[in-house]
Design a protein around this nucleic acid. Structure first.
Length: 457
RNA sequence: GGUCCCUUCGUCUAAUGGUUAGGACUCAGCCCUUUCACGGCUGCAAUAGGGGUUCGAAUCCCCUAGGGAUCACCA
């Protein structure tokens, strides 16, 4: 089979992480089967759609590297074909005009809900609309009233529903625009989508939409309704759970590789493999292995994956991420210093934006320790720092010599590294923890090191 | 409320009738160590509850409880 999948977001806001995961699944499934992966913007609701949102979605997809290589499809551009189908359904008797006004509809809705029956307009069985000819109407699909509908969903399994619970959904609005329920089905058919992979909040819709397909005798696609992502409290992920926009995670210092890997393993895995990167995932991905139950979004695990990825990345790539993020412009010397120290610094953060804390001592001219808590200690050991500083100035500038120089000082003064270490660290970095001191001294260079050790506190 | 779906350590999950129920994250402890990390090792911790079927059930069936999705001229 020639697999074709699609990711079909509605451009009403940013790309949220649930949508991002749906995109990943669609992308991977298509790649795995050497098929096509398409993106379709579902902008049937013009009032809620925006250009800005479309841009945000592309930005997100590009960042995650799951954008389509094919032409992006805009649903609104196919309106005419959708409308045509609505009238075709009407002509064939599978749909009907409904002239209910909003008050009448509201009453019907309340009644339906009380009785636990779906909405079916009284116009369903009226032969001709005669005097209503000029009134506003919607077109509703005439759902089968008996029998059952079964969908063999790749993720959810075989599910059967009684047709009597299906409501006569609106397929064409009174302003002559098609609804999502119609447009989506028509576009999927036109695009020859073979596998519809989407959030399971659409599962109920599938039983309604499939009726259109049956009436028109179109090919029924495979369905795979993947579970939603939940917040830590078990409810559908929303803003109160923290960032829900995919791109927020970029701004927070997560790599797209980490997001990809994490989102993918939220609901899918093979055996005990833990990290799935693009190339491996495309080989292994199988919809059948997707869990039916929703998974909770766990930032701690994301942090862990991100830290691991950051540490396995090429130094230049991490460097670039940080430079871009903070718009740093560094001298050659500073660049070299940063890159040399970066592998050690990265071990200490989970998101690369946390590296910002290191910028002061790394790049600030005339740096000195500003932390009040350490001032007295620095004053107390003023002489020691100066002595070490002057010894270092005479030292050949290699890691080995610097190390020897410090060791000599320790030996001659009957000290241990534990005694001088913390003081040196405060003077050089202003902090109580840092990478190895010898490397720091080496990378800072003789002049800067000496200046910092000679500072009068 | 109707309909549909779900339920294995706190979290993500493995185990498709036979395992001391495995791994990963988190947490705790230890080792390494000039600090903080990295890394390594060890530990805590689960089959929602109740009935069946079976020699044997996390796994199959039923009931209960809990959770979720959906019920628009939104998508």
């Amino acid at each position: 089979m020639n697999v074709i999948t699609r990711f079909a977001p509605s451009p009403t806001g940013y790309l949220h992480i649930g949508g991002a995961r749906t995109a990943i699944f669609n992308y991977l499934f298509a790649k795995k089967h050497s098929g096509k992966y398409l993106v379709r913007i579902e902008d049937t609701d013009k009032k809620r759609s925006s250009e800005k949102a479309i841009k945000a979605i592309h930005k997100g997809l590009n960042w995650l590297k799951v954008n389509s290589e094919y032409k992006i499809i805009y649903q609104s551009q196919n309106f005419n074909s959708h409308i045509k189908v609505a009238y075709e359904l009407l002509e064939k008797g599978f749909a009907y005009k409904c002239f209910l006004n909003s008050d009448e509809l509201e009453k019907l809705r309340i009644k339906s809900r009380e009785n636990g029956i779906p909405i079916k307009s009284p116009w369903r069985n009226k032969k001709e609309q005669g005097k209503n000819q000029n009134k506003e109407f919607v077109i509703r699909l005439k759902m089968p009233s008996n029998g059952t509908t079964t969908i063999d969903d790749i993720v959810q399994g075989k599910v059967t529903v009684k047709n009597e619970i299906l409501d006569d959904m609106v397929i064409l609005r009174s302003d002559n625009t098609p609804t999502y329920m119609l447009s989506s089905v028509v576009d999927d058919n036109n695009m020859k989508i073979t596998h519809i992979i989407r959030g399971d909040d659409h599962f109920n819709n599938a039983f309604r939409q499939i009726q259109i397909i049956k009436y028109l005798d179109w090919n029924i696609p495979y369905y795979a309704h993947i579970p939603l992502i939940h917040g830590t409290d078990g409810t559908k992920l929303s803003k109160r759970h923290g960032a829900t926009s995919l791109f927020d995670y970029h701004n927070l210092g997560y790599t797209s590789e980490a997001m990809f890997s994490y989102l993918l393993q939220l609901g899918w895995s093979t055996k005990n493999d833990q990290d799935y990167f693009m190339d491996r995932a495309t080989k292994l991905f199988a919809l059948e292995k997707v869990n039916k139950s929703p998974a909770k979004f766990d930032l701690k695990k994301l942090n862990h994956i991100n830290a691991k990825i950051l540490n396995n990345m090429n130094v230049n790539d991490v460097y670039k991420l940080v430079i871009d993020k903070f718009k740093l412009s560094l001298s050659n010397e500073e660049q070299k210093r940063f890159k040399s120290l970066l592998p050690e610094l990265v071990k200490r953060v989970q998101v690369y934006t946390d590296l910002e804390d290191e910028f002061d001592w790394l790049f600030q001219k005339n740096f000195f320790c500003k932390d009040k808590n350490f001032q007295s200690q620095l004053q107390k050991h003023n002489l020691m720092l100066k002595e070490i500083g002057s010894r270092l100035q005479k030292c050949e500038w290699t890691i080995e010599s610097i190390k020897n120089c410090l060791n000599q000082y320790i030996l001659q003064n009957s000290l241990t590294f534990k005694v001088i270490g913390p003081i040196l660290r405060m003077a050089l970095t202003g902090k109580t923890n840092s990478p190895d001191l010898v490397s720091i001294i080496y990378e800072l260079g003789c002049t800067i090191t000496a200046n910092r050790l000679n500072y009068e506190y």
